[in-house]
Design a protein around this nucleic acid. Sequence first.
DNA 1: GAGCACTGC
Length: 761
Amino acid sequence: MAGKHSDYSEGGPAKRQKTTEMDPKDNPYLAHWNENGDDGFHSNGVSHAPSPLSKLQRHQTTVKTAVDAENGKYNPFTGQAFSKRYLSILKTRKDLPVHAQRQEFLDMYQKSQILVFVGETGSGKTTQIPQFVLFDDLPQHDGKMVACTQPRRVAAMSVAERVANEMDVKLGEEVGYSIRFEDMTSSKTILKYMTDGMLLREAMNDHELTRYSTIILDEAHERTLATDVLMAMLKELTLRRPDLKLIVMSATLDAQKFQRYFNDAPLLAVPGRTHPVEIFYTPEPEKDYLEAALRTVLQIHATEAEGDILLFLTGEEEIEDAVRKIKLESDEMIREADAGPMAVYALYGSLPPAQQQRIFEPAPPPRRPGGRPGRKCIVSTNIAETSLTIDGIVYVVDPGFSKQKVYNPRIRVESLLVSPISKASAQQRAGRAGRTRPGKCFRLYTEAAFKKELIEQTYPEILKSNLSNTVLELKKLGIDDLVHFDLMDPPAPETLMRALEELNYLACLDDDGNLTVLGRMASEFPLDPALAVMLVSSPEFFCSNEILSLTALLSVPQVFVRPNSARKRADEMKNLFAHPDGDHLTLLNVYHAFKGEEAQKNPKQWCHDHFLSLRALQSADNVRLQLKRIMEREEVALMSTPFEDKSYYENIRRALVSGFFMQVAKRDANGKTYTTVKDNQPVLLHPSTVLGQESEWVVYNEFVLTSKNYIRTVTGVRGEWLLDIAPGYYDIDSFPKGEMKTALTRLKERIERRAKMKGGR
DNA sequence: GAGCACTGC
């Protein structure tokens, strides 16, 4: 029988063949599995009838046994009597669309090692499928777990909480979650929701993912970097581990692509539960999408029935500007046309959480009894497309653009570019109008443009990113042959070459592409390779404590706050922390002040007074602690140069070079502009820098491509350090003839002269 | 003299 699996063997194929024919009871590896009490059932010490699941055989259960257990008096996973709340939730759960296809799901799950599951919004897939799996996979019988990955932390947390309630267990016990900074699981856990990045981390240390019996990749259509790497890795792992089951859950559009990728795995589709959304296109292309968007919003407000509006724009500035204009115009409509009141909210990622929460305030009431109803209008970035769900939206205005990351491997630069969205994205946006009742979506482009000009899917992350981090992870995962690693969308060879080259320069990979000791250590840190290498090397410069703080500060959002209304004061405050040698040292000054006695008396007030982001600094603190623990584990020494020592700051700047020697620019002959070493890109110091033009050589943290080419977070270094600390990269012979080569040659001669003078004394 | 779409470890 093809569908019968007996998957407990750890032996080779011959042994597996044998066990499929064997009664599982006779399997020596399973000696314990049918014994009462060995399945966690009586773990609370309360003695009831044995769990109805204890006698079942893995992957041979029926829907009936599961439903009987769910409808029983006692919780089959804890042995406790079910609560009243459980019964009431159970009733609503049974109404979810997935329940109608439970048998179908079970048949396919039992028959096939890999399954592609397509569930629309509202189908209940994220909460129900993992539970269906539990009743058949029975991970508790041999101490394994079912994992369900999510692209975002909040989703992992909130879904775990929901499912713990549904299963009538305490969150963190049978059902838990695991995300960065928080492991809410225990030895009892049999269902674990986690971020995809977290599962990838685990895989780096356990290539076989032995703790899991089934892995569910949810929201696979979002194609995050971690999901893409996991898919390829799991595709290989399923061959090595026939006992491991894999379910890939996705939205409809690209289901067949997933199916093909997984060797024509069976596909199960379950309808969702949403309301119809009527789509309107403009008859002619719009010249100015911003103007058209404002016009459309106001027109909806004037002519359409009650219901809230969601407008998608591309970024903070554009959004704040639109909010101002809509407010002005709608106030005028109240005065001139007796329109209803309209509350307008901005929504984007860098907004403080309290302000993000305001979008959930109810729409304003009519201005007088019987007057025109009020509504709210939310002007948002893509954050409202997937990450945040707002109920009550009836009208969506979609100009068809978003900021998207673009990677140029030639000059190694990631930048954000306003670009047309994909069809999938447009569909997702429209869907936001139909969550509570039928809605309307106004697309500010023609139907022909939608059909002919929009790409089907947004390009997956892996095609838009610098892959040095990913390549390091793959090496740590034990994947040596990157060229034949079967990714769903393989990146351009040049991108991979660039990543390998970069890792080689960082000494994370040797010339044969093998992980070095440094590379292995760097991969332990949740950091970009340059930052990780800088951190691991920092004891050589006697300042690992300071580099640790700096690394944390560089991995959190912007620390300095600069509201439009108080730019001057904000700049003055920043100048209090300014260090003449650059922005890195300035950041460090901020952190030290933040950790100082005065600031800690009232951090919130202190940050507010100094125009600093409390959230960013706290998060840096959190990251710092995590990195410090890894340093201790990896035995990277923590040390500081005494502050009185005159080389305190110099040591830090030298340590910076050890990680960022590839991000160096040299001042041009004109004394104003800069040019990046090796890529020869003309750049300017970002206006936010504390640095003047006094440094001939600077390291930079970030290349920002906006109205001009800027380098941001910049610190001055001495040219000699480059040759001294990164001689492999600054191999003068490898530079083409030109200004850069001349400058480096001069540096080298200076070093040699100095050495001679010292030697001659 | 400027702008950080969104995630994740």
